[in-house]
Nucleic acid binder design. Structure first.
Length: 301
DNA sequence: TAAGATAAGAGGGACAT
DNA sequence: ATGTCAGTCTTATCTTA
């Protein structure tokens, strides 16, 4: 892998580069500098391990972005371009990055720093409360930093932005958490998280994959104690629905819940609408509505 | 008791002004 | 920027089987 020119930081040849497999950004774990993903095409080969795997598997020390004293440099402007948008000479960009690093380190003692401390303290508390994986926490911390960087936090509550970052992170990682789930674990109201979340993905250009209905089914099944057989039947049905594009525009959870409900009926599994609605975090009415227009739409096809 | 029906209201997207 | 409109979902209450 080419590690010259643009990929250089104050650590020089001692730099420890790792790639975030989700967003593709490259981080030096020694100084915390971050490069945007387009610099390198392929993923670093070290990352064949599960994110929950042993820490020894990682190249370099497992520095956490969720620690306030590390990764401050994620706030450094990441484009090695001059004011006219041209790429800088490698030697110049190295120097500039060194400057930026120290610039930020000196500023870090101020309100920005304290804000991050508060945010990440809160974040680690929420980790247990919401049952989030390390990877999700890392990403949430990363998103929050970006938000901070863009002054999106100013005028809004830290908690709301943080909660939104967590939600966005869950979405990106494909963890089936709803706004409601996140709201339940925090002091923040659902709509406030939702508002902040929309701002985040708008301003930070976060690409959020659509919620995978299959994962919703899996989650609800576990929650409601539905048999493997019924679950798989539901997934099959869901596949068809996705192909027929019936799934668009509805709450994925509501749809998944309905499909599961139908599956239960078919397999003679005694689950009430209430059981499933509770497990899915939607109301019975939503299931009924979905149920009704699924039936009419299936007849049309 | 589970399920269906109905009504009122919240929140957000699309679109026009 | 602000308002309107259609569509979705929630909460609450009543009815039906």
């Amino acid at each position: 892998m080419q590690r010259t020119s643009i990929i250089s930081c104050i650590c020089g040849p001692n730099q420890q580069l790792v790639t975030d497999p989700e967003c593709g950004e490259i981080v030096c774990t020694k100084c915390g500098l971050v490069w945007p993903e387009r610099v390198i095409e392929s993923r670093a080969e070290w990352r064949t391990f599960d994110s929950e795997g042993s820490e020894r598997a990682r190249a370099g020390s497992p520095t956490s972005l969720a620690q306030h004293d590390m990764g401050l440099s994620t706030m450094i402007g990441k484009e090695n371009k001059d004011s006219s948008g041209r790429q800088l000479e490698p030697s110049v960009s190295t120097a500039i990055q060194r400057l930026r690093t120290w610039d930020f380190r000196s500023k870090a003692q101020s309100s920005t720093h304290r804000g991050l401390i508060r945010a990440f303290t809160e974040l680690s508390g929420l980790k247990d409360k919401l049952g989030l994986s390390d990877a999700i926490i890392e990403k949430a911390a990363y998103v929050y930093r970006k938000a901070q960087e863009k002054s999106l936090v100013r005028g809004r509550s830290t908690s709301a932005i943080l909660a939104a970052a967590i939600y966005a992170s869950c979405r990106e990682m494909g963890a089936p958490r709803t706004l409601k789930d996140v709201a339940a674990g925090t002091e923040v109201k659902r709509k406030d998280i939702s508002r902040s979340y929309r701002i985040l993905i708008l301003e930070l250009d976060i690409k959020v994959p659509l919620v995978d209905p299959m994962k919703c089914i899996a989650k609800i099944s576990n929650q409601a104690g539905i048999s493997e057989k019924t679950k798989r039947a539901a997934m099959k049905t869901m596949n068809d629905l996705v192909e027929m594009k019936i799934s668009a525009g509805k709450l994925p959870m509501g749809l998944a819940a309905t499909v599961l409900y139908m599956s239960c009926l078919k397999n003679g599994e005694n689950k009430t609408q209430r059981d499933i609605a509770d497990a899915a975090g939607v109301t019975e009415v939503t299931i009924r509505n979905r149920f009704n227009d699924l039936q009419t739409r299936l007849q049309l096809n």
